[in-house]
Design a protein around this nucleic acid. Structure first.
Lengths: 150, 150
DNA sequence: TTCCTTGCAAACGATTTGCATTGGA
DNA sequence: TCCAATGCAAATCGTTTGCAAGGAA
């Protein structure tokens, strides 16, 4: 994700998506997008703000996140945390899952081999088949202790 | 879970666990536990309070939840919601997963056949094997549209 | 000029906490 | 009696919003 080409491509896609929603891709929004694209896991608005060198009011970052969420550019991470954390949506960063440290709270993205992913999808499909629930997405969150807290 | 015997057993287990933590199983706490045992999905403190006939201050329910969480009796549901939702811990209600409606927000427990569960565990194990992350638990959240919102 | 965007401060809502009172062992 | 548990009100803290100033088309 630190790759320059990928990053440029992501920015272009975000710009296009925002254009569809008739909103501008301003510098402030670009900065937030850059941090999200660079992150290795979902970030809270506070973390996001701290990572941005120049001082930006929290409310502006909140508004940017709201615009992004509305346009489907970011999604909120499933968590038990007191603070919401956000990451680029799947169509931008690819399907992935999370390792959540139960001690320090750190969340790390994890990519999962295609064959295993297919297995998970089979599981989801077979679970839903008995019900009238129509699945559109799934999240496999793995809790445990990370390297540092191990 | 509406079964009386099961329910009685759960209360006994909770009482014992609380005793281990040197806290009493008071009437207020029993009422909260009863609602949780009766629920078919995780509940917010507000929902919990509303379900309890007699009026109880929110702060008391919050405190009960805090005590329960501390004793490992309830756990907080993984969510993107603005309000935290709680359910009885796994050792009390068994391992299960969730169907989350992306329209109405309703969360429903889903039990998963043993062979499929084993598959999920294999997936988790194989994902963690490459890392220094030590998994202790996992959650498979299935998002989609429920019967009513379908 | 015309709107969208931003900053600042105030408002909100979920959750927590201080303190005095109640109640169980 | 003694300390945990509770009710109430005030405090916190993440998040949202009103409004006026700034900026792009």
């Amino acid at each position: 994700m630190a790759n320059t080409n990928e990053s440029a491509s992501i920015h272009r896609q975000i710009e296009a998506r925002l254009a569809d929603h008739d909103v501008r891709y301003t510098k402030g929004r670009q900065r937030v997008a850059a941090e999200l694209a660079d992150a290795d896991g979902p970030l809270s608005v506070t973390e996001l703000t701290q990572k941005m060198s120049e001082s930006v009011p929290l409310s502006s970052v909140y508004r940017t996140i709201a615009v992004f969420e509305d346009a489907g550019i970011v999604s909120q991470h499933l968590a038990t945390s007191e603070m919401a954390r956000y990451e680029l949506a799947e169509w931008l960063r690819g399907h992935h899952h999370h390792l959540v440290c139960i001690d320090c709270g750190r969340v790390e993205d994890i990519e999962i081999p295609e064959d295993i992913e297919r297995t998970v999808e089979d599981v989801v499909a077979s679970l839903a088949s008995g019900t009238s629930f129509q699945p559109t997405n799934h999240a496999l969150e793995i809790e445990g202790r990370c390297k540092e807290c191990g």
